[in-house]
Design a protein around this nucleic acid. Structure first.
Lengths: 113, 113
DNA sequence: TTAGTGTATAAGCATATGCTTATATATTCA
DNA sequence: TGAATATATAAGCATATGCTTATACACTAA
């Protein structure tokens, strides 16, 4: 009992989540697949900056990528060994649904379908 | 509903917890008060290094300090606005009880009573 | 094939982080 | 009072982080 996640692995994951951009990304990805251009729009951040954040999440396999035509969609990796740990953290965060709704309102979400 | 903790505050707290030393400290403090010398022994780390980690936790008021004679004891601040968030994370970590037991076995815990 | 779009990567840079050593402060005890 | 102990702080340094700009790669469409 008290299995629990290994402390070093936990710290490694927390390090990834400890950045506001990546934390919000993960929260968003928990309910929506997103492509890079959407994140660029949501975070008002350069495309390379977004790509580099995504790479870090990908390196630990917290997210998955899937190319669809020109676009690459990212999704949360629910099969990750420590996904329950991650999910538990994300669950406690305030909802981010508005970002997606704003995108839709601007018609920007369509670009990636 | 879905009140949730603010994302920036969450990221700030996660940043503190994202260090293996501080994360283990917090896990330990959840069940035991500890003084600095104990942490020095547990982590085999210099006293200033330990002090600096504790200062960061103190700055966000995740922990409290209380001087008792020569020693300063640290404890978790359960009154912190975001303590539930923190606790939820700590709950998922593997138990750290052995560190304390080892200390006791070496008779080193006594030094701080 | 070529141009345009979406994404990744590389290199560079400013700032942050976590240690180190040296020193200051607080307390106890002789 | 002075020495010993516990802790905090300051300064310095190596490394990590997160951006930037420039460029490469992948796909689409003309």
């Amino acid at each position: 009992m008290n299995a629990g996640i290994n402390t070093k692995q936990a710290a490694q994951i927390l390090k990834l989540l400890a950045d506001p951009t990546r934390l919000t990304m993960m929260k968003l990805l928990k309910s929506h697949e997103c492509c890079v251009c959407e994140f660029v729009e949501i975070f008002k951040m350069s495309q390379p900056a977004i790509s580099q954040h995504l790479r870090k999440l990908r390196d630990l396999e917290l997210v998955r990528e899937e190319r669809r035509g020109q676009w690459i969609f990212y999704s949360i990796n629910q099969e990750h060994k420590d996904y329950p740990f991650v999910e538990n953290i994300l669950k406690q965060l305030a909802d981010q649904g508005e970002s997606i709704k704003e995108l839709e309102a601007k018609g920007l979400r369509i670009c990636c379908e």
